[in-house]
Design a binder for these strands. Structure first.
Lengths: 242, 242
DNA sequence: CGAACTGTTGAATATCCTCAATTTCAGTGG
DNA sequence: CCACTGAAATTGAGGATATTCAACAGTTCG
């Protein structure tokens, strides 16, 4: 199994050499069982993980015991990079489905800055994109209603699942329990349930098991508290391809 | 006025050449009036800003008109870097006090990756630290009570103001209106006021105008929903100094 | 000194949470 | 094939936290 690099291609045309470096960046792929933590808050970390398959959550636990899922990652992500500035992991990485990851020691990552400067810049860009996602999540969590948040979550998954071919007719599998959705949005599972049922009743969405159909896209978009971000292709300030 | 580089020194020993590059990174400093936007959401951007003096907020406005202040920046920050992956600015940068900034075109920033790889890596690290701050803010905004959030905000400012010498006897000036604090925490100004008064009544803090005194640090820390982050000094995976 | 902003307080309300019970469903073993 | 199990989804009732609306006091600044 190989690292899906569609996210980098989305930002710049990669040279063959750069593609080769990306493909050989990680160690041998590792299978991860659902629910088995990849790393835990507070553990020492020596590298990050390339996300090859499955759904993986990154969460933080508060003193009160409450958990917030900071992001649900999809294949192509780099997991655990925020911890590269710490002695101990900042978050809990837990697969929500069976998943596959490949380890990248920070040392190998550090060499990129010398050996493939443009690739290093692209990784910086990937980090900025994650930061933007967090900014938006923070704004929405802080100021939007449960209904608005839920609509945004659905459209966000719709947007992110499309490039990996997991959306058909505005319909996709969402392998998250309502409790997980609650931890992702900062709501209780009870309130998530009431919100889902309300959206269904109003004809905005339909469900069959964990398959969600966005029945009324204009309606959902109107509910969305924020417009989608449009990353820029081929940034002209990047260093020359190496 | 010069760019305060204490944040980078906090992560690695800089060489003279690196210090020199950092000091000459920005254009001539510009004075910013309180309330005069440095840039607005949706505007085209060609670079970011080094933060030399004053307090500057970065905010996002939702479709509903509600505003969330994503972060209140202090001198030493790099402002507007998330927008480097977009055609249009992601946030509104507005000084909360008179402030000074210096512009850095993205082109000049991009050259760093070739000319000073370790410095480029340090800027990546700065971004990861901001990302961590957002992760924590998201967790707290999503799951903590107003009282807990407020305690955390105070301890956060205490921590960040200390290295720039703005804290004396657990006491510091906080040039934010209660409405700004509300937008920062995802609360209304009315509820911020009630929360402040309650903390005062309980002897956890004292106020005189905008000067806050953290009268009961242990009590405030106990209220904090998250422990403080401890960035690591001298990361051994960084590329060699250039 | 007056205007505008900020802070403060009360009353009514809304949203979301907590607790608890019940139903549904997928998977297991008899 | 069916009962059994545990997890997840669903629903109701009551309560807590935070919002909204509104009024008023205090500050700042031209």
């Amino acid at each position: 199994m190989e690292y899906p690099i569609h996210r980098f291609r989305g930002v710049a045309d990669l040279t063959d050499r750069e593609v080769e470096i990306l493909r050989t960046l990680g160690d041998r792929p590792v299978n991860r069982a659902k629910g088995e933590p990849i790393h835990r808050e507070g553990q020492a970390v020596e590298g990050f993980h390339l996300h090859l398959a499955g759904w993986i959550s990154s969460s933080i636990v508060l003193a009160s015991g409450k958990r917030l899922i900071q992001k649900v990652h999809l294949p192509g992500a780099m997991l655990g990079t925020p911890s590269m500035v710490l002695s101990f992991a900042a978050d809990n990485l837990v697969p929500l489905t069976p998943a596959v990851t490949a380890f990248v020691p920070f040392k190998r990552f550090g060499r990129l800055f010398v050996e493939a400067p443009r690739l290093a810049a692209l990784l910086t860009i990937a980090t900025q994109l994650e930061r933007l996602a967090l900014m938006d999540a923070l704004a929405v969590t802080g100021q939007a209603s449960a209904r608005e948040q839920f609509a945004r979550m659905l459209i966000d998954f719709h947007t992110r699942l499309t490039p990996i071919g997991a959306v058909v007719d505005n319909s996709f599998e969402l392998p998250l329990t309502q409790e997980v959705m609650g931890d992702l949005l900062g709501l209780t599972s009870v309130h998530v349930n009431r919100t889902v049922k309300a959206l269904e009743r109003d004809g905005l969405i339909a469900r069959r098991g964990q398959r969600f159909t966005l029945a009324d896209m204009p309606g959902l978009r109107a509910l969305c508290p924020l417009p989608p971000r449009r990353p820029r292709f081929n940034l002209e300030w990047l260093p020359p391809p190496g």
